[in-house]
């Protein structure tokens, strides 16, 4: 009887310690991942994904044939897709 009680005390103490450590580590990692996402999203919103994407856009256009219809088409796709994913880009100028 006493051995059984001792076994219960030992095993349950181990369970408590291990589960507390696991939950604490999980919480820290969840917090870290979420914070990274938030800071990345803030960075995109403040600097403007516009800058990054427009750079890509103009590089793409400059490296290919300079076709105004193509530019308009790509720009329209970009604006629509960025609106769809929740980014609010400034309307870029096509003067380059």
């Amino acid at each position: 009887m006493n051995d059984f009680v001792t076994l219960i005390y030992v095993v349950t103490s181990i369970i408590l310690v291990v589960s507390s450590i696991i939950v604490f580590i999980t919480y820290r990692e969840v917090k870290k991942v979420l914070n990274e996402r938030i800071s990345a999203a803030k960075k995109i919103n403040s600097e403007g994904s516009t800058v990054k994407y427009h750079k890509t856009f103009f590089t793409l256009v400059n490296n290919n044939t300079s076709n105004s219809m193509l530019e308009d088409l790509i720009l329209a796709i970009f604006l629509h897709s960025s609106t769809f994913i929740g980014v609010q880009p400034k309307k870029p100028s096509l003067q380059h």
Binding site: I8, Y9, T12, L16, T26, V30, V33, L34, R37
Partner: peptide
């Protein structure tokens, strides 16, 4: 003792369940 253990452990399990749901909803 066992009541304390089960109360503490079940609370941890519930919290873990909630985190797992948040992670799944965020796609992380």
């Amino acid at each position: 003792w066992l009541f304390f253990v089960s109360a503490f452990f079940s609370t941890l399990s519930i919290l873990f369940t909630e985190w797992a749901e948040i992670l799944n909803s965020q796609g992380i």
